[in-house]
């Protein structure tokens, strides 16, 4: 248990005594929010999931890329 406490205090004291780190963590969190919430949800849907029926992705991709006989 002692080592668990030590690890806890390593992180606890570390985060508490951050100076420049606070700014950097803020930037990281804002960036992650923009990437995962704004960009991923609103601008980067999974094209195949949106257009192909579930379980029929292979057929959908083949219809996208294969040449077929008349």
């Amino acid at each position: 248990m002692r080592w668990l406490t030590k690890i806890w205090y390593l992180y606890y004291d570390g985060f508490r005594s951050m100076t420049l780190g606070r700014t950097l963590w803020t930037i990281i969190l804002v960036k992650l929010f923009i990437i995962f919430v704004v960009l991923k949800l609103f601008f980067f849907p999974n094209y195949i999931k949106e257009h192909a029926p579930e379980g029929d992705e292979a057929e959908f991709v083949s219809s996208q890329i294969l040449w077929v006989d008349d």
């Binding site: 420049l20 950097l24 980067f44 849907p45």
Partner: peptide, 30 residues
């Protein structure tokens, strides 16, 4: 400290490439 600044700024920027695979490059991605 300089490493930390650069690391914090760069972290996760590569993830966007994976988003682009799924949206713009879906045939390739599949």
């Amino acid at each position: 400290r300089l490493f930390g600044i650069n690391f914090a700024m760069g972290v996760a920027t590569g993830l966007i490439l994976e988003f682009e695979f799924g949206t713009n490059w879906s045939n390739y991605s599949y």
